[in-house]
C-alpha cells in the first residue's frame, strides 16, 4: 500500500509563498486562514548564521494524535496513501485535534469544522500532484510514495540529509525537509 509524503528542498525554497496562494485557490481556503505557510528559521551567532526556509503544512503523521483523540472518528487516515483527513459531516468541532497537533496545522473553518491540508487528495486520486507541488517556481517540492524505493521522494531521502519537524513529539511526520 502506498504511503504518501512530501520532500521539500530547503536549499531551493525561496519563501515566495506561491504554494500558499496555490493552496488557497485550489481548496477555497477562507480569508484569514492558511492550510500551508512559510517558516523562516535563522540559527547561529553572527557572522556564522544559517537560514532555512520551509513550506510547512499538516505532516500527515504516521502516528497521528489528531486521529486517535477524535471522539467521533471524523479525523481519519485515508485508505489511499495514509493521508490524514477530516470528514466534515462527522466533525463536532470539539477542537481536541487542534490541541493535539504539535504543529498547530489545523484550524476551525468558518463553516464550523476542523480543517487542514489534505495533500490535495482530490487531485492525487486523479494521478496529479498537490497544487503546491505543481506551482512551485523553484521545483523545491516533491510528492510521492515513501514506501516505493524507486519513487523520487525515496531516492531523495536516501541521497540527501534531511529532517522532520519536532521529531521529539513522536508523531512520525511524513513531510521531510532536505538540508
Amino acid at each position: 500500500m502506498a504511503r504518501f509524503g512530501m520532500v521539500i528542498d530547503t536549499k531551493k525554497c525561496v519563501g515566495c509563498m506561491d504554494c500558499v496562494v496555490a493552496c488557497k485557490t485550489e481548496n477555497n481556503v477562507p480569508e484569514g486562514f492558511n492550510r500551508d505557510w512559510i517558516v523562516q528559521e535563522v540559527i547561529g551567532k553572527y557572522p556564522d548564521l544559517h537560514m532555512e526556509i520551509r513550506s510547512e503544512r499538516c505532516n500527515h503523521c504516521d502516528n497521528p494524535p489528531c486521529v486517535s483523540c477524535c471522539p467521533t472518528g471524523a479525523s481519519h487516515v485515508h485508505d489511499l496513501g495514509g493521508v490524514v483527513l477530516v470528514n466534515h459531516k462527522e466533525c463536532i468541532s470539539c477542537k481536541a485535534c487542534l490541541a493535539s497537533c504539535p504543529y498547530d496545522a489545523r484550524f476551525i473553518h468558518p463553516d464550523g469544522y476542523a480543517d487542514k491540508c489534505t495533500l490535495c487528495i482530490h487531485r492525487v486520486e486523479k494521478g496529479m500532484n498537490p497544487a503546491c507541488v505543481d506551482v512551485c517556481p523553484t521545483h523545491c517540492m516533491y510528492f510521492g510514495d515513501l514506501d516505493d524505493p524507486n519513487s523520487e521522494v525515496s531516492k531523495l531521502l536516501k541521497s540527501r540529509k534531511h529532517h522532520t519537524n519536532i521529531p521529539a513529539a513522536g508523531t512520525k511526520p511524513q513531510i521531510f525537509y532536505l538540508m
Binding site: G32, W37, Q40, I43, K45, Y46, E56, D104
Partner: peptide
Amino acid sequence: MNELTNTRNNLMIDP
C-alpha cells in the same frame, strides 16, 4: 540565536 518567522496567522492558533 534561533529565530522563527512564520507567515501563518490562523484564528485561535496564532500567535
